[in-house]
């Protein structure tokens, strides 16, 4: 290994933050992912688009360490995620906003945010939380209320803000627009654009392609537990195979034997 090329050739800003290699995920007899390869570089925004049941959630769950791959691996900073404890994935710089947000309804808004800073030991946590309250006055006004009382859109903002408090290098969002009114979704995507501006890499999983296309540097169309089509958003949108990839995957999933 000494003097080997790749170490010297690797440019720090181009090095993959997360590298998914031949990932296979199974739940009992059901195969959710059938060998997925994906790299996300520092500061890059990748959108995963696909119908329900295409395996999108399984992919983010595997990167977050929530599910164990049956084969293949997820490499984070040179470390296999399966060997990192679940609670240490966020310490390696990967934060997840899961589908359904999973805010702690019995805890206050401020407590939810403080939990987001769990991995941190510095004394900037309180100022960071104040900053969030300034940007989202509604969260500030309700800081002492139970987070379960917030509206869906407010909960989504809280969930994203909470994830950002860990100061991630990669933020993963599973269906961030699910169940939200179009105006609220605009707000969510404005926030995501800001986060991208800060140089944080994003992995956004959506059923709804249009929003994610505007944000992403790269899009992968998922179907049937595998990437069907991948490339720059413009190229994908122009690709005549897009409909076939998306809808074909949808129909294939529907008709596929489990």
């Amino acid at each position: 290994m000494i003097g080997a090329g790749p170490v010297l050739e690797a440019k720090p800003d181009r090095r993959a933050l997360v590298s998914v290699q031949g990932l296979v995920v199974r739940y009992g007899p059901i195969t959710a992912l059938r060998g997925v390869d994906l790299e996300i570089g520092a500061g890059e925004c990748v959108a995963i688009i696909g119908p329900n049941g295409a395996g999108k959630t399984s992919l983010v769950s595997a990167i977050a360490g929530l599910v164990r791959p049956a084969a293949g691996k997820v490499v984070l900073d040179g470390l296999d995620v399966a060997r990192i404890g679940l609670a240490d994935v966020v310490r390696s710089g990967v934060a997840l906003v899961p589908e359904g947000r999973n805010i702690f309804g019995s805890l206050t808004v401020a407590e939810n945010l403080r939990l987001g800073a769990t991995p941190r030991k510095d004394d900037r946590i309180a100022p960071d939380i104040d900053e969030i309250f300034q940007r989202f006055p509604i969260l500030g006004q309700r800081r002492s209320q139970h987070a379960g009382q917030l509206s869906g859109g407010e909960q989504q903002m809280l969930a994203i803000a909470r994830a950002m408090l860990s100061r991630p290098r990669l933020l993963m969002l599973d269906e961030p627009s699910l169940g939200l009114a179009p105006m609220v979704v605009d707000g969510v995507y404005e926030l995501l654009a800001d986060i991208k501006q800060q140089g944080v890499a994003l992995l956004v999983v959506e059923q709804n392609a249009t929003r994610a296309f505007g944000l992403a540097d790269r899009v992968s169309i998922f179907g049937h537990g595998a990437i069907q089509l991948s490339g720059a958003p413009d190229a994908i949108a122009a690709d005549t195979n897009f409909d076939a990839a998306y809808f074909g995957a949808a129909y294939a999933d529907r008709g596929a034997p489990a």
Binding site: A64, L66, L86, A87, D88, V89, V90, R91, L96, P98, N102, F104, L115, G116, T118, P119, R162, A163, S166
Partner: peptide, 8 residues
């Protein structure tokens, strides 16, 4: 699980 995802 969510607490663990946040680093607990």
């Amino acid at each position: 699980r969510m607490a663990q995802v946040l680093g607990v």
